[in-house]
Design a protein around this nucleic acid. Sequence first.
DNA 1: CTCCAGGGAGCCT
DNA 2: AGGCTCCATGGA
Length: 302
Amino acid sequence: MESGAIPLTAIPGPMDLQATLESGQTFLWERIDGKTYATPAPGGGSAWYRTVHDGEVIEVRETAEALEWRSSTDAVPILRDRLRLADDLDSIVQDFPADDVVQDAVGRFAGMRLVREPFLGTLLSFILSAQMRVERIHEMVTAIRTSYGEPIDWDGEAVYGLPDAEVLARPSEAAYRDLGVGYRAPYIKETAEMLSEEAVSVPEISGAEYEDARDRLTAFVGVGPKVADCVLLFSLDFDEPVPLDTWIQTAIADYFPEANQDSYAETSRAIRDRFGPRPGYTQTYVFHHLRTAEQATPDASD
DNA sequence: CTCCAGGGAGCCT
DNA sequence: AGGCTCCATGGA
């Protein structure tokens, strides 16, 4: 086992590991303490998080001074890439619009970064996300990972990463339904088949202009414009997408009504213009802010 | 009980 | 192109 620490002073701008990993951008990490998407822990520290990257186990937590890591390999370049540690967050946030809802979100989650997660896991996660709560998406991805991934021995514990598309194309639709994914079962199977057959060129999508890339991604079964936007934003390094989910639609209705247009493509352009030079970053803050504000309001008994 | 969740496919004009 | 209906599941 290797281990190390990335000093927070080596990261441009603030860092909030928990907000980054528990804001519904990625479903490929698990908290080792067993609590998933718990309310933020006060005190500057975080739980340990674990993922499997190309067959290597990676664990990371945030302390007051550093991102500490343990891994079967050198985790530093992987963490820098997946957690976008090179992003100058102060500069990015300065470009956000001055609207209260945006600035309130920045105030709550300073240090939340976009992620740059592996393509297959991101694609499947957001296919599963249709009409589903964030916590359950994580449960479904975990169920697939632990059911069909190869166990990795990690200090005597079996750790499961997501297998490749060829493996995920094998289970029957009924087998996926048994995992509780509902009507998304055929989407998962058919998309895995398309990937294993290389029916769609992912490098071509990565290299395309944003709206063209979004259109191309919808060739996968279960992928419409919203899911495509999530994949482009959280995996393929596009900063333009503003996924128009129920929360962002609510935000548009309440705070940016002039951006409400007739079609997804037109509304997308309007809200992008409204959000400024970093639309994807702005969206991620607003989404996390509104989603977590709602769950805090229903009752004061807890 | 009803309503809702990071929507999309299939079908109809 | 744009509108309508159906699609599983679990929590509030």
